[in-house]
Nucleic acid binder design. Structure first.
Length: 287
DNA sequence: TTCCAGGTGGCAT
DNA sequence: ATGCCACATGGA
């Protein structure tokens, strides 16, 4: 553990001292950069959500990361890994800025300097990004929330609110398209059930993620980046096309050119670069 | 009304 | 291999 932490039993609270690394942490950047869909901002600026069956509330105050609703050991067992706290984002940012001679990445990092690539559950990421296709972020959040609330195991209650886990492949494989019609997932329902059936039958998630119904190149690269922590994976969606077109001068249709550029310029950290750019262009556009 | 959103599968070249 | 286009849904 690179960080000093303290657990306060009577408050069910963990305090993690970030020190000078605080600059590599920003909850808005982390939870609002489109990588996750199950965290909501509270009126006090903190974020509440669920991951790996644990409900938590995060805030950052005076160089401290505060984890509310935590049990003793949750930080070491769950959140240290989930928040990718072993990774040195200062080094990643320096590398990306040095390698991108245009200065665009430097500007993007100024805006989204506290982004981290969460180490999310692969199955949840697979389902989430099947739902994400040709969809917008608020509705993706609603769709996933509805799915978990309707078919997921209750995980607990925090501040009078119930939280539910992502239903597993066995549970989703039982469902029919007609049955989940009220969730209004649209044509994605079929992909979701088909994928669940395959994962159930095969007993694990395939290496060839793109062979699932509803998983094309973009969704696959999101699952690799967010669900398998392949940091060089560079998902190209409408927003990345936009930033590559408007700031880097690529033709909007030249997806191959964008991918090649990212691989050469951003290398092993292309996925992190993609998140800075995604967040940046959305801020520029007023989201 | 039309366009858009973290696109993809199916089909025709 | 590449180019269209239909596909559900809801907000702007």
């Amino acid at each position: 553990m690179k960080y000093r932490s303290e657990y306060i039993r009577e408050k069910k609270e963990t305090i993690v001292y970030l020190g000078e690394k605080e600059t590599d942490y920003n909850l808005d950047h982390i939870f609002d950069c489109g990588q996750c869909f199950r965290w909501e901002k509270e009126s006090d600026g903190s974020y509440t959500g669920i991951a790996f069956s644990k409900i938590a509330n995060f805030s950052i105050i005076d160089q401290n990361l505060i984890i509310k609703n935590s049990e003793e050991g949750d930080f070491e067992k769950i959140w240290y890994n989930y928040l990718d706290m072993s990774e040195d984002y200062g080094h990643i940012k320096e590398t990306l800025i040095t390698n991108d001679k245009t200065g665009i990445m430097e500007d993007a990092i100024k805006v989204g300097k506290g982004i981290r690539i969460l180490r999310q559950d692969t199955w949840e990421t697979l389902i989430s990004f099947i739902i994400s296709q040709n969809n917008n972020i608020p509705r993706i959040k609603k769709n996933i929330g509805d799915l978990c609330r309707t078919y997921g195991k209750p995980s607990g209650v925090y501040k009078e609110r119930k939280f539910f886990e992502m239903p597993d492949a066995v549970d989703l494989a039982k469902l029919s398209e007609e049955e989940i019609n009220p969730l209004k997932l649209g044509y994605r329902s079929k992909f979701l059930i088909d994928t669940a059936k395959n994962v159930k039958e095969e007993g694990n998630i395939r290496q060839d993620i793109g062979s699932y119904m509803g998983v094309g190149p973009k969704v696959e690269s999101c699952i690799r980046l967010f669900g398998l922590h392949e940091m060089d994976s560079f998902p190209i969606d409408v927003w990345v096309k936009r930033v590559m077109n408007r700031l880097y001068g690529f033709n909007e249709k030249d997806v191959k050119g964008m991918g090649d550029f990212a691989k050469v310029t951003f290398g092993e950290y292309a996925g992190v670069a993609q998140q800075y750019l995604f967040y940046y262009v959305r801020v520029l556009e007023g989201k």
